[in-house]
Design a protein around this nucleic acid. Structure first.
Length: 771
DNA sequence: ATGGAGACCTTTTTT
DNA sequence: AGGTCTCCAT
């Protein structure tokens, strides 16, 4: 446990100021790389030295990643026991925990389950079909976003349906039935004892609004509140925090308006701008010294963000070295872009003895990762793609979780529908339709019909009834085990006795799915072996003795976790690929931002309003400020979109970086590879991507990458046994032997990544690497 | 009831 | 290009 002095000695003066201000409201404006998390965690440690109980501390973050990082760093500072007593987590996860405890007050049952976006869309799809509405008019995703916005503004389905203004607006946009859909949707979720993401915030507000004694309970418990990324909070989140802090007024919010990138989903910049209206006595501290990046990067970032008109005054500066200038590569297509990035990484690794994990490749959309991935794989550069939905969105994982959900909450209709016939047990679409009709008729849950088919007599034949009953019995037998077995044992039991494992094993093509399920089971095993974050009884504050890591607890921990299962292996030596959004809050030595093109970044969907464009620019600011040592930006003249090639203009953002922070702007190396007829004429000032008229005839230009940075091009005579060479596709290798002379000379080269290849030298374009 | 072929749609970003 | 959905053949 650190003393007050050791805590403060690790901080600069404004950081200290922030850490020492623990009573009363505090707003921290924290520039990129200014040690924000450091201040938050040290502030928690400092509180403990002042005798504040960790049990009274609540720290809310926006993403799981941020929560995890904060937990780890708090743990390092104040030790295990204290760290576990604090409440550090995302808004959604902390509130889910509370809502499960208080569920009955809100008319829900215990063991709430959480519907993710896919579940929610599914429910909406069913409702829209039931109402005989056109699914293409009432797009489930769009309807969901309307519902989500309403809930974020604390409108209930009833409020929505009864509002004449909203009804008018929906009528004008040709979607008059959204109110009715919303009503049915809310009813359906309640019936399933489930909440969607927005409900977690909405019902938390309802709880604190309608139950004063509950409000008081949590106000007393959470006497010190910290909110990270305050600029990303929406109205519902803002109000919860305001209510919780109303008694103690010990609230610290941290944010950077320049890094607000979630307005598109309801985040409200005003929350940070209005903080001092709610708390006039608030202290304001600005963290402006950047410890992360070079002067070049910091100054370039400052210059970029100046193009935005809406922002708080702040001047980020650094004492770090000047550093390398920012490189821009102009390439002809995405293959070349990927090759250029790969070359640069290999080059830097070789010259400066760097590791893969010092590099990150960032992009605007997930779709861009594919071309990069292919190239990295070809070049044998280890990489990892951080895509939010990768693991948990897999069919087999969702199936498995559906079993868990149904086990914990028999009324979880989406889970039931998902697995009632997986693996196949003769309960097909027809049967499902029949029992749905019966459930509506008797106004009971789908589960009731499945559980007691002989009572409700759905119009299915007798063997089918038996099959339904068998399924229900199986699930009930799992439910009965929840408190008796730990999560892993029960999960294993479910996987084996449900037939899921067998189904996966029978089908050779499902091998990968089987492996994923096994990986999931491994992660459950480690969950059961790991002590939980919070060993206190939420009601009493007492230590929980004989804690058992049960399946329902596992589900709670995983319900809101979209991150990868094997997130522990962070020290893996791999190049990291992710969207800029996903990179927020992270830092990397060497950063590549690809696809710096109009309509991609800034996105074509964000060009409508100044507000949206400014958000894109903030996103660019975030991208730039991720880099510690070097930053490389790339853009292409041509890129595939929706499967067809499109011309691309360089992003306006590139022109917003002052020249004195920029290095060589490399010209596209292979303009000539476009056949002249369409190369220039369509490239004009149009703000749209222009589809190429010629499909699939674009020449491959991967061999025309700029290799000047790696070495000089070899003539056939240069190639002799035992020398080391570089090849644009195969990478580095050693020449084994040669055969023939001059233009017909061949060489056998043993490449590091792909092994021996025989090359005809007049075509191979080998490079002699610089030493 | 199951699966395959073809149409069709998608594309921000995340809890 | 890739995934999802629909419909038709089995």
């Amino acid at each position: 446990m650190n003393t007050e002095n050791t805590i403060l000695s690790q901080l600069n003066s404004s950081q200290q100021e922030a850490v020492k201000h623990i009573e009363g409201p505090l707003m921290l404006i924290a520039g990129a790389g200014s040690g924000k998390t450091r201040v938050l965690t040290h502030r928690i440690a400092y509180m403990l030295t002042k005798g504040i109980s960790p049990y009274n501390i609540l720290a809310l973050t926006f993403t799981n990643k941020a929560a995890k990082e904060m937990r780890e760093r708090v743990y390092d500072l104040i030790g295990e026991a204290n760290a576990k007593a604090t409440s550090v987590g995302t808004f959604h996860s902390i509130f889910l925990r509370i809502l499960r405890i208080e569920a009955t007050k809100l008319g829900f049952r215990e063991n709430l389950t959480v519907y993710d976006t896919d579940d929610a869309k599914n429910v909406l799809k069913n409702i829209i079909k039931d109402m005989n509405l056109d699914i293409k008019t009432y797009l489930p995703g769009y309807v969901l976003s309307r519902i989500s916005n309403a809930k974020s503004s604390l409108l209930s389905a009833e409020d929505y349906a009864q509002s004449p203004e909203i009804a008018q607006a929906d009528a004008v946009s040709g979607l008059p039935m959204i109110g009715e859909i919303f009503l049915r949707y809310a009813a359906r979720l309640r019936k399933s004892n489930a909440m969607d993401f927005d409900d977690l915030l909405y019902f938390m507000n309802v709880l604190l609004r309608d139950f004063p004694e509950t409000l008081l309970k949590y106000q007393r418990r959470y006497r010190y509140i910290l909110v990270d990324e305050y600029q990303d909070t929406n109205y519902a989140q803002y109000l919860i925090v305001k209510k919780l802090a109303a008694l103690s007024r010990n609230i610290c919010v941290v944010g950077d308006d320049a890094q607000s990138i979630y307005a598109f989903r309801g985040a409200n910049i005003e929350n940070i701008l209005n903080f001092r209206r709610d708390y006039p006595e608030a202290k304001l501290v600005k963290l402006e010294q950047n410890y992360r990046s070079t002067k070049n990067i910091v100054k370039a970032a400052n210059a970029i963000i100046k193009y935005n008109t809406e922002q708080l005054q702040k001047e980020v500066w650094t004492n770090n070295d000047e550093g390398a200038k920012i490189t821009i590569h102009s390439l002809s297509n995405e293959t070349e872009e990927a090759n250029t990035v790969a070359n640069s990484i290999l080059d830097m690794k070789l010259n400066f003895h760097l590791k893969n994990n010092q590099f990150a490749i960032l992009y605007r959309t997930n779709a861009q990762s594919r071309a990069l991935e292919e190239t990295l794989m070809k070049r044998n550069i280890p990489y990892k793609i951080y895509a939010a939905t990768s693991f948990y969105n897999r069919k087999e994982i969702r199936d498995l979780i559906a079993y868990f959900r149904l086990t914990v909450n028999n009324y979880d209709e989406e889970a039931l529908r998902r697995i009632i016939n997986y693996p196949h047990r003769g309960i097909g679409a027809t049967t499902l339709e029949k029992i749905t009709v019966a459930a509506d008729e008797y106004n009971v849950h789908l589960w009731n019909i499945v559980n007691e088919p002989h009572v409700y007599n759905p119009e299915v034949n007798s063997p089918t009834k038996t099959r339904l009953q068998d399924f229900a019995s199986k699930i009930k037998s799992y439910t009965a085990q929840i408190q008796k077995m730990n999560a892993y044992d029960l999960a294993m039991h479910i996987v084996t006795t449900s037939g899921m494992l067998l189904a996966l094993k029978e089908n050779i093509a499902e091998k990968e799915r089987l492996e994923n399920v096994e990986e999931m089971l491994d992660s459950i095993k480690s969950f059961t072996e790991k002590q939980p974050d919070n060993l206190f009884n939420e009601e009493t504050g007492e230590m929980i003795e004989n804690y058992v890591p049960t399946l329902d607890r596992y589900l709670e921990s995983v319900a809101l976790l979209i991150d990868d299962v094997d997130e522990d292996k962070e020290d893996e030596d791999k190049v990291k690929l992710m969207t800029i959004h996903a990179a927020k809050g992270l830092e990397f030595d060497h950063v590549y931002v690809t696809g710096m093109e109009e309509n991609l970044f800034p996105s074509s969907l964000s060009l409508g309003t100044k507000r949206e464009l400014e958000e894109e620019r903030r996103l660019f600011y975030v991208a730039v400020t991720r880099a510690k040592k070097s930053l490389t930006l790339t853009h292409c003249q041509m890129r595939y979109k929706y499967g067809s090639p499109m011309f691309c203009e360089r992003s306006r953002f590139l022109d917003e970086i002052p020249d004195n922070y920029l290095k060589i702007i490399q010209k596209a190396s292979s303009k000539a590879s476009f056949s002249g007829s369409y190369a220039s004429s369509n490239c004009g000032k149009s703000s749209y991507s222009v589809p190429l008229s010629v499909k699939k005839s674009v020449p491959k230009t991967s061999k025309q990458i700029n290799t000047a940075s790696i070495g000089k091009e070899a003539t056939p005579d240069d190639i002799v046994p035992n020398i080391r060479v570089y090849h644009a596709t195969f990478g580095y290798g050693n020449v084994i032997k040669t055969d023939g002379v001059s233009h017909d000379k061949k060489a056998v080269v043993n490449f590091d990544s792909v092994g021996e290849k025989t090359l005809l030298l007049k075509f191979a374009k080998l490079i002699l690497p610089y030493k």
